[in-house]
Design a protein around this nucleic acid. Structure first.
Length: 196
DNA sequence: ATATCGATTATCT
DNA sequence: GATAATCGATATG
């Protein structure tokens, strides 16, 4: 298996699974419908391309841990590490289909006053949006084990399997911009658009 | 419908 | 000092 294949395989397994946030007795749940693969040190578009730094060290740790970064002075984005310790491949969560805790997500996004299917799509359709809807920040979540039931941010499964997965180039990257490492569930309403 | 642009700061050169 | 794995607002067709 090639260097990028392990990350791509993890990504395909992750599509259709659930991102779950525990807020006290409330649960926020979203189905993972879009993500991007970052290949680690050899991927010019990856944060790990510069080698191990204070910021990206979670990427070089064991798989299943949350890597949260802050971007454009405004937004947090969530990755999960997916390579053995010492290698830095990860998957960026790009879009979720809201499943439960929708009122809480609306409140977190400042969209509670505007109900309707139109705003429903704005809740978690984009990496910055889903992070805001789930209250994800670097201080709160970076380095968290997303495979441990004790965590308040985990990945769970309900048996759903995507019928068809499509791949395109990654969004917003300027280096290695042609690699088809953005994966999404074909036809899902909550996939972010912006390119084919 | 698409295009362009400003916000705002951590991180790296 | 420049850039960035983005978003939302505004302008224009």
């Amino acid at each position: 298996m090639g260097r990028g294949a392990a990350g791509a395989r993890v990504a395909r397994e992750l599509l259709g699974k659930l991102l779950v946030r525990r807020e006290g007795r409330k649960l926020l749940v979203g189905r993972i419908v879009e993500l991007e693969v970052y290949l680690g040190e050899n991927d010019p578009a990856a944060h790990a391309a510069v080698g191990l730094t204070e910021r990206n060290r979670v990427l070089f740790g064991p798989p299943g841990f949350a890597y949260v970064y802050f971007i454009y002075g405004n937004h947090y984005c969530l990755n999960v590490s997916c390579m053995p310790e010492g290698r830095a491949g990860s998957v960026l969560f790009r879009a979720l289909e809201p499943i439960a805790g929708i009122p809480e997500m609306q409140q977190a996004r400042g969209l509670e006053a505007k109900p309707g299917a139109r705003t429903q799509r704005l809740l978690t359709s984009g990496p910055g949006r889903l992070a805001e809807a789930f209250g994800i920040t670097r201080v709160r979540d970076n380095g968290k084990d997303m495979t441990n039931d004790e965590s308040d941010l985990i990945i769970a499964a309900d048996g759903y399997r995507p019928q068809k997965i499509l791949a395109t180039a990654r969004i917003g990257v300027t280096k290695a911009a042609d690699m088809p490492l953005r994966l999404f569930i074909a036809g899902n309403e909550f996939v972010s658009v912006r390119r084919l």
